[in-house]
Design a protein around this nucleic acid. Structure first.
Length: 996
RNA sequence: GCCUCUGUGGUGGAAUUGGUAGACACGCAGGACUUAAAAUCCUGUGACCUCAACAGUCGUGCGGGUUCAAGUCCCGCCGGAGGUACCA
């Protein structure tokens, strides 16, 4: 076989160093610099620097078995650009990475395979690390953290103990050691519900006691009382129980009534659980939002989740009883519109107040309501259900009897679990009243309320005794005054935020450092931490339904006291990890105070918006707590936060012909119809071919084809929706017996059989935006891209795709443009065929290009507009190529500009320019306005706002001079059509507009 | 329903304080180099009208408004994405 000499030479070159110099060989370059960075650790953050500090943090990943796909690095690349940019700008940068390595998937996998979760976690981490390294991130790996490592979770447990030993003192509005509460009990006792030291929105009645009584309480009693105040506590509450996962879930882990992970049904269940009293911080979590630069949508989510509402509590005396029902309302102005009271099916008085006649009906209803799953309950929200208890309350102002109903539209967990129903002015009450034929009263002026409630807080009160004539807002005030005066209740602020359930009936999580002695929970002494996760024979609950940790043999504190068997939830470790990075190896403290004082908090935090009401709320809570207790100096974890958009998958579908039409003239042939342009052509293919695929560009939906789109191409075998037949057949061998119909013929077993109509042999697929998943063959890993185009191209391309915060589908259609750009950059240094850089002084246009770029790039980075900086680099390199510029004075600063984005190629060329050290710490080029000053400005001349022509004028002309020259211009006369301009608007160096 | 974001060529997207809409890139079309392909380079490319040029008309989801001038500001609609939902 003849072998062309040229190709032969090429291969020779490829193996010689000479070849490497000629072409941009990303593989060698990237391997080389990744190794150097690994060996020399240039990105180690300095704990004692005199430089200003800058802390850039990514939300650390959960190391799943699937590895990273191209969506993960999007935020990491942006933060890495920021980190590198700040180093150039003279900052001491902390840019760490770690793993959120406790979690359900590893445990589920362990249940299926018996493989210990620690083992799979370790493997997954190794894979993640390998993938991350290939992208060239400037992480300080010496500070890596893993939440599942005992040296890390020792401190998670330590923080748990601090929370247990603290309470929230509303007098000082901060968390304090529990001792200060005990002191109050010893001197003042506790005055019951009206006492101002009540915390955490305890709705339960807690009996008052005197200092003497406190002194006489036994240990158990004292423990029980204190439990109502501790910031982490063991309490009975309705929880989200997920039978399929065998564990409880926090509110943010439940979406649409099913578990966020796995989508399993969730029920409400009364259980004794460890919880975090985040509600104590509700107001401060709300207020803090005004001090941080986070996206508005995220802050809104948190505000809504916290759900502050102002209103009043109000007691209704139950008829023929000394009990009273307490409700919470934000509309006390409508008190005269109350036509019944509704209580939740779980309300503690349900049994007590129900009359004998109604007993059966109520019991039936309550049982049904309680057994309904959360999903069912939420699904038919508009479906009204309820039952009359037979009991009445006495209206405190009118003295009339008011019926008490049970209805599941009232939630047990919010407020008091009871509402005063005002159907005239509340949609839900209205629905209920209509359904059961209860009276509807109008007490605010407005549209008639019989058919539809009038909920707006506007209008004058009517039919309301002493409130008559008042505007709603004034009436609310007046009503509260009156209620307080008569001792019926008091003005009150409620929050939707619930305490966070903290225990999980699961294995793969931090053990809770608690043991039980005589039925009293005790936290372990701090110096005995960590409480290491014990080995178990199976990762399943015990036969008695106890959590997996109950299986651990001889696992008892001091050999005799049972440990707590639940473990901490996934968000425990991530609620303080930003602090651990400051001092990752410390075994004396979670972090040295000196270092937390130095690093303060995160300057830029990048991550997904899905953590809005979970992680991002908890981490703020813990930060505020640690601040209150004096452990750290800041009370917010991150000053600025950016949500990177999600990257969706782009599938490429192959259209499959279903209809078979035999050729009547030849029974062995099958007829194929092809639109070539608008002409319908008939062609034949052998009938024996079973699978027939058809290129998307010749499909005409009105044609005789029936086709399906159930077949996927592997996206790696498609570029710009053109299928690479050869690669496809290598990947999916079965299809070698299939026909791929194109405009001009068809492919069969990688051979093209022409129809002799001069049509194309390109086979096109149909792209579709879908979630990335294995079954859709549209998962793209960063490794594939690094292998094919290099890490620098991947980094640039992910940024080039569009604004960081916007969600977008991943497709590689534009990637050749970015890779071409890097080649073009490289060629600037090789214009003569070898590496040559001129030491000559740069020309004016060269300096203009450089400084224009410096200005743009600096502005782009400062406003996180990374996509536009890639465009600006392209413009710069295009211009320098046109100018044939190879001057050191231009190219050197350009490399520094580019190095945050494409660090490998920047380092390589920097070294070739003769520098010894890394480019990573070279000073960022300073912008000099002088180079952009032009003698002339090309004015757009518009008439009535419509741009007509350009006129080049000296840039320093006055407005009068400009007007004179413009009016004299030949083209101006043409557009004036002999008319006299009414007005001439001149904005120097911007625009001229002539108004006719 | 409510909240937040969003709507610009065939495609991804630019236009930072109201001032030349469509930068940059992909794709497409044509050309150069090549036996050929790849790679690379050059030219053109919003739509309509025109053989073409010059010119012209339209054009940033729709309808109004403010302004010398609106993708950008205001009012009212419509579509898309995400979050959230008996929270009294």
């Amino acid at each position: 076989m003849p072998f062309p000499l040229k190709s032969y030479l090429c291969i020779l070159y490829k193996n010689s160093t000479f070849y490497d110099y000629m072409e941009y060989n990303f593989k060698d370059i990237e391997n080389k610099w990744q190794k150097i960075w690994k060996d020399t650790k240039p990105f180690k953050a300095d704990n004692t620097s005199t430089k200003p500090k800058y802390y850039v943090l990514d939300m650390f990943p959960y190391p799943s078995g699937a590895g990273l796909h191209v969506g993960h690095p999007l935020g990491y690349i942006a933060s890495d650009i920021m980190a590198r940019y700040k180093r150039h700008k003279g900052f001491n940068v902390l840019h760490p990475m770690g793993y959120d390595s406790f979690g359900l998937p590893a445990e589920q996998y362990a249940i299926q395979t018996g493989q210990h979760p620690a083992v799979t976690t370790e493997q997954n981490i190794a894979r993640y690390r390998e993938q991350l390294d290939k992208i060239g991130f400037s992480f300080d790996w010496d500070r890596e953290v893993r939440t599942s490592d005992p040296s890390y979770y020792k401190w998670t447990q330590w923080i748990f103990i601090q929370l247990f030993n603290s309470w929230y003192n509303p007098r000082n509005n901060k968390a304090e050691p529990i001792e200060s509460l005990i002191k109050i009990f010893e001197t003042e006792g506790f005055k019951g519900l009206t006492h101002d030291i009540l915390t955490g929105d305890i709705e339960k009645e807690l009996e008052a006691f005197t200092p003497e009584q406190w002194k006489n309480f036994d240990e158990k009693k004292r423990s029980d009382v204190l439990m109502n105040f501790r910031l982490t506590y063991l309490g009975e509450a309705y929880v989200n129980w997920c039978p399929a996962l065998g564990t409880v879930l926090a509110n943010d882990e439940v979406k649409d009534g099913v578990s966020e992970r796995g989508g399993h049904p969730v029920e409400r269940k009364l259980m004794k659980q460890w919880s975090m009293r985040i509600t104590a911080y509700a107001q401060r979590l709300l207020d803090g939002l005004d001090t941080i630069d986070w996206t508005e949508s995220l802050k809104e989510s948190q505000r809504y989740w916290i759900g502050r509402s102002e209103g009043t509590s109000l007691k209704f005396q139950i008829e023929n009883s000394d009990l009273h029902l307490e409700v919470f309302t934000t509309r006390p102005d409508t008190i005269f519109g109350v036509s019944f009271i509704t209580i939740a099916p779980e309300h503690e008085y349900v049994d007590t107040i129900t009359t004998a006649e109604q007993k059966a009906a109520v019991l039936d209803y309550v049982t049904k309501a309680k057994n309904r799953s959360e999903r069912e309950r939420q699904a038919d929200v508009t479906k009204v259900s309820g039952v009359f208890t037979g009991a009445y309350v006495i209206h405190p102002f009118t003295g009339k009897k008011v019926q008490i109903w049970v209805g599941d539209y009232v939630l047990a967990g919010y407020g008091t679990g009871a509402v005063m129903a005002v159907p005239g002015h509340d949609e839900r009450d209205h629905r209920f009243a209509k359904h059961f034929g209860l009276p509807i009263l109008q007490v605010v002026e407005g549209p008639d309320v019989q058919e539809q409630s009038y909920d707006a807080k506007e209008g004058k009160c009517i039919n309301s005794d002493f409130l008559n004539g008042l505007e709603v807002k004034a009436a609310i005030k007046k009503a509260i005054e009156e209620i307080e005066k008569r001792n019926l209740g008091k003005g009150k602020t409620n929050y939707r935020l619930r305490d966070a359930v903290f225990g999980r009936q699961r294995y793969w999580g931090e053990p809770i450092p608690v043991y039980y002695k005589d039925g009293i929970p005790h936290v372990m002494p701090e110096n005995e931490l960590p409480l290491v996760l014990p080995e178990v024979d199976k990762f399943l609950p015990t036969e008695d339904g106890e959590p997996p940790l109950a299986r651990a043999k001889d696992w008892k504190y001091k050999g005799q006291y049972d440990y707590e068997w639940t473990t901490m939830p996934g968000w425990a470790g991530s609620s303080w990890y930003f602090l651990r990075y400051m001092d990752a190896k410390n075994d004396k403290a979670f972090a040295d105070k000196k270092l937390t004082d130095y690093w303060q908090n995160v300057d830029l935090y990048i991550g997904g918006s899905e953590h809005a009401t979970g992680h991002l709320l908890y981490v703020r809570f813990w930060t505020k707590f640690l601040f209150d207790r004096g452990f750290i100096a800041v009370d917010e974890p991150a000053k600025k936060l950016i949500n990177q958009g999600m990257i969706q998958g782009m599938s490429e579908k192959i259209n499959r012909l279903i209809s078979v039409e035999k050729n009547p003239d030849d029974n062995n042939k099958r007829l194929i119809y092809i639109y070539k342009g608008s002409v319908l052509e008939e062609h034949n293919i052998p009938l024996a071919i079973k699978n027939v695929f058809i290129s998307s560009d010749i499909i005409d939906k009105s044609s005789k084809f029936d086709y399906s789109t159930d077949k996927y191409a592997n996206v790696n075998n498609v570029s710009n929706s053109v299928l690479d037949i050869k690669k496809h057949l290598e990947w999916w061998n079965e299809d070698s017996a299939a026909a791929f119909i194109c405009e001009g013929g068809y492919w069969l077993n990688n051979e093209f059989i022409s129809f002799n109509n001069n049509g194309s042999n390109i086979f096109k697929t149909t792209p579709e935006v879908e979630k990335m998943s294995k079954s859709k063959h549209n998962v793209q890993t960063p490794d594939d891209i690094c292998e094919k185009f290099g890490a620098d191209t991947l980094r640039l391309y992910e940024m080039f795709l569009g604004p960081l915060e916007q969600s977008k589908p991943w497709n590689t259609n534009g990637i050749t443009g970015v890779s071409g750009f890097l080649k073009k950059l490289w060629r600037l240094f090789y214009q003569t065929g070898s590496f040559v850089v001129s030491e000559d002084a740069p020309t004016k246009p060269e300096l203009k290009t450089l400084h224009k770029t410096i200005k743009k790039i600096t502005e782009d980075i400062e406003r996180f507009s990374f996509n536009t900086s890639v465009s600006n680099f392209m413009i710069c390199v295009n211009e320098l190529s046109d100018l044939k510029c190879n001057k050191r004075a231009i190219l050197e600063p350009l490399l520094v500009l580019i190095s945050p984005y494409a660090p490998h190629v920047a380092e390589e060329l920097w070294e070739k320019l003769g520098h010894k050290g890394s480019i990573a710490f070279a000073a960022f080029p300073e912008f000099n306005e002088a180079h952009l000053v032009e003698d002339n400005f090309n004015y757009p001349i518009s008439f009535n706002g419509k741009m007509r022509f350009n006129l080049e004028l000296a840039a320093n002309l006055s407005v009068q001079e400009i007007e004179k020259l413009v009016m004299e211009a030949e083209q101006t006369h043409k557009y004036l059509e002999g008319k006299q301009p009414k007005k001439v608007i001149i904005v120097p160096k911007k625009i001229v507009n002539i108004v006719m």
